[in-house]
């Protein structure tokens, strides 16, 4: 009981501390200091050609961060792939009724369409490479859950997934290097002369859709690797 009270007290005092800090920060007068976010909002569409401002920040203004985050994910997938035992076994040992199997079979095409849509329209509507990649990763995950890990890895071998993941990462860097070829800086988009097109069309915003595709491929494959590695047992 005392231990629990101690824990509670610790959490509450930390919360109070942060609350005071946050309120202090918000009481400051900072009207003039938001020029960066205001610039993103007012000029983002003209400068990057992407209607979705989150995408324009993620894949254009701060695309370099995205490369780093994708690398973190690749590292995590690599760790889990070698840390978790190589031998396979079934996960729960559950067999489902035929309804589950049939439902999964019919669900997969829809998930694939949704994933592709989210990735391809990342610069026009909410979503983007990361979210779309997760949706795409649901396909192998669903296969592993219902039909078992053997079937899932027969359809998509771990090596295939690993190669796809690496191709996504290399593709991102190569797309960034396209700008270097034209004599501009790494990951430059509009400045390097890639046609931004009319904002709102599918093929617009220069490199952003292609970067989205690469990240989508990478994230999807990486998460599928992580999930299957977690499911394996000794």
């Amino acid at each position: 009981m005392v231990k629990k009270l101690y824990k509670l007290g610790l959490v509450v005092s930390l919360g109070m501390f942060l609350f005071v800090l946050f309120s202090d920060i918000h009481n400051l007068d900072r009207t003039s200091k938001n020029y960066l976010s205001e610039h993103y909002i007012s000029e983002g569409v003209q400068e990057t050609g992407a209607i979705n401002l989150v995408t324009s920040v993620l894949y254009d203004y701060r695309a370099f961060d995205t490369l780093g985050e994708a690398t973190v994910l690749l590292t995590a997938a690599t760790i889990l792939a070698f840390l978790v035992p190589v031998t396979k076994a079934d996960m729960l040992g559950t067999t489902f009724t035929i309804i589950v199997y049939q439902a999964t079979k019919y669900l997969i095409p829809f998930i694939a369409v949704l994933g592709v849509y989210v990735i391809m329209f990342g610069h026009l509507s909410p979503g983007g490479g990361f979210v779309g990649g997760v949706v795409m990763a649901l396909i192998p995950i669903l296969l592993s859950l219902t039909y078992g890990i053997d079937f899932s890895e027969y359809k998509l071998t771990p090596n295939t997934k690993k190669v796809v993941e690496d191709i996504g990462a290399i593709g991102f860097i190569l797309l960034g290097l396209l700008a270097v070829l034209t004599g501009n800086n790494f990951l430059a988009n509009g400045q390097a002369g890639f046609p931004l097109g009319n904002a709102g069309e599918l093929i617009s915003a220069g490199l952003i859709p292609y970067l989205n595709v690469m990240i989508g491929i990478k994230v999807g494959a990486g998460l599928a690797i992580i999930f299957n590695s977690l499911m394996k047992e000794q």
Binding site: N185, F186, L187
Partner: peptide, 9 residues
């Protein structure tokens, strides 16, 4: 990176 100057990295 990306020729954004102070807007980017």
């Amino acid at each position: 990176v990306g020729d954004w100057g102070l807007l980017g990295i």
